[in-house]
């Protein structure tokens, strides 16, 4: 059986809020290492990969591999019934029909119990190779969100160009063009504003802004975001969570006509 207790419901609320417009039904794969999810959007352009390691939970117990097939819309409805600070416990049997959620207020004076009916989901699973990326950019997640939102007002796509010490986000639209450049920046006083660009070779790739704006819904999960790029491979956008857990998005690049 599965029993996983989260100190703060907000983590799961934010994860589901961040991915539910991209994927609708997905399996939460539970085993003794934690709870994982991999799902592609309908157009096969973007992929969500979530890993909540067992250390994220306290306690965490899962004796067997259990796949919880959940409709994310339903999941969100139930998670909205939890306060952000509530303690959240997920429970399921070994061959479950439902997943149970228990929300406890931090003062322990209220306990809410919900069940969500599970679905059989036959999901395509992609093998994602370990990639040595040519460029890895770490930047404030809010900054990345702003850039994507601003440029999406002008254009459907953005070119991300990484070169030594600088990354440039460039768009060309009907009403005009836009470009935002960021350079390596490190401050002891405000480390949350740091920008770090690691580069082994220059990279320039074009991506759909609609998807990037969608990924940025995860900004509340982490103060920083990591963008990993190599020429002619999908972009990795990673939000690191506590205990080596993560929420990752992959986006296929656009190719020239």
């Amino acid at each position: 059986m599965l029993e996983a207790r989260l100190e703060q419901a907000s983590i799961l609320k934010k994860v589901v809020d961040a991915i539910k417009d991209l994927v609708q039904d997905c399996n939460f794969d539970c085993n003794d290492s934690g709870i994982a999810l991999q799902a592609m959007d309908n157009s096969h352009v973007a992929l969500v990969s979530m890993m909540l390691k067992s250390d994220t939970f306290s306690p965490f117990r899962c004796d067997r591999n259990i796949a919880l097939g959940i409709n994310l819309n339903s999941f969100q409805k139930v998670l909205r019934c939890a306060q952000n600070e509530d303690i959240l416990t997920l429970k399921a049997d070994d061959s479950p029909d439902v997943v149970s959620l228990v929300f406890e207020s931090s003062e322990q004076d209220r306990i809410s119990e919900y069940d969500i009916k599970l679905m059989d989901i036959d999901q395509e699973h992609l093998g994602i190779p370990d990639t040595e990326y040519a460029a890895t950019i770490t930047m404030p997640s809010g900054e990345f969100q702003r850039i994507c939102r601003d440029l999406s007002a002008l254009s459907e796509s953005v070119a991300i160009e990484a070169e030594k010490n600088a990354v440039k986000f460039v768009c060309n639209g009907d009403i005009g063009n836009g470009a935002i450049s960021l350079r390596n920046h490190s401050s002891v006083e405000k480390p949350e504003q740091n920008v770090n660009i690691e580069l082994s070779e220059p990279v320039a790739l074009t991506f759909s802004l609609k998807y990037l704006v969608n990924f940025c819904k995860a900004s509340g999960l982490s103060g920083s975001v990591k963008l990993c790029l190599s020429n002619e491979v999908p972009l990795l956008v990673e939000y690191e969570l506590a205990s080596n857990s993560y929420l990752r998005f992959y986006l296929a690049p656009k190719i020239g006509d």
Partner: peptide, 14 residues
């Protein structure tokens, strides 16, 4: 307009 690739061109099905 650039054409959007498909992820399964990069990642193999398991």
């Amino acid at each position: 307009t650039p054409i959007q690739n498909d992820l399964s061109e990069f990642f193999s099905m398991v």
